[in-house]
Design a protein around this nucleic acid. Structure first.
Lengths: 158, 158
DNA sequence: GAGTTATTACTCGGATAATCGTTGTCCGAGTAGGATAGG
DNA sequence: CCTATCCTACTCGGACAACGATTATCCGAGTAATAACTC
């Protein structure tokens, strides 16, 4: 899985803590020492997926497009990784001795079905967790994190 | 996910139908028109994981190392893809403003925990399905497949 | 002083390379079966 | 005819390239704040 997923999730959490204030890609990258231009690329993907909104020019940057409890982890992962399954059935049965050109083996092949079942379980788990859940969890285990991030963004050299 | 997973799973099913008779990598590849040398690589991984046994020389080949109901889909996927999680937490929090060198963020970071939870759901689903389950499912939907494969292996040019 | 305009610095956005993992290929080590020669 | 030895063909096993995706970088289009200028 792309490393950008981790960056995107942490960026969403940080943006949630900024409560609607726009933050530039450069600052979001600097907080963890990430390459700014590349993180920018990931944030663009999030914007294209409707998770973030972007504004250009001075005082511009990114902000969450909707409330944290409306953003699931699956939304973020799908925005970065794409919507297709990790296991993609190539229908190799079409070249086998029992092949039938009429059949769509992505729907009938027992292996494909079993793998898809596992993938759906994964997706269901991700869809059941939102950015708000992450915020709440961090609020319990590391209550200082939110204000630390806010003051860091306030004091960082522009 | 590597395409070799699909090949490995189908090969395991075909080997199960051969009931202990050794089949060469070349034949297993020819049945679906796959590159023989590359499939051989995947089968080696399965052998190293203890899922298959391999014998060299004439009349050699691969066979299942244990009964199909003792081989889970997770066993096969792990043998090909490796044991580490798809989402690997790089602990970027270590570079953040609230960093603590003592903390192992792979265990405490809320994002890491949430992603791991989804991954475990995926693994649980795969671990709950065996090659025998696939065989049973195919036996219901395409009863001719097993004998088709057996006669194909019997008649194929050596 | 207020409004308007030109400027300027800043930010995203997409186009462009570098790196790494997956995919694909090849040849050598080892083995088992069979042919062969001897008893 | 039986047995032991040699040989041959076959198969796995790991070492060696090619391709593609991910990772990383750079510069241009657009924008909003700012400063200057006019009335």
């Amino acid at each position: 899985m792309s490393e950008g997923v981790e960056w995107a999730l942490h960026s969403c959490v940080n943006l949630a803590w900024m409560e609607g204030q726009a933050v530039t890609a450069a600052k979001l990258a600097a907080i963890y020492g990430l390459p700014a231009a590349y993180l920018n690329k990931q944030l663009q993907a999030l914007a294209k997926a409707g998770i973030l909104t972007s504004t250009s020019g001075p005082r511009g940057g990114f902000r969450l497009a909707r409330e944290p409890d409306r953003i699931t982890l699956l939304d973020v992962v799908t925005a970065i990784e794409g919507a297709e399954d990790a296991f993609r059935c190539e229908q190799i049965l079409r070249n086998g001795p029992s092949a039938d050109p009429e059949i769509d083996y992505r729907r009938t092949c027992a292996i494909s079905i079993a793998m898809r079942k596992a993938e759906l379980a994964w997706r269901r788990e991700l869809a059941g967790q939102t950015i708000a859940d992450i915020l709440a969890q961090v609020g319990r285990t590391a209550p200082a994190a939110a204000s630390n991030v806010r003051s860091w963004f306030a004091n960082v050299r522009p």
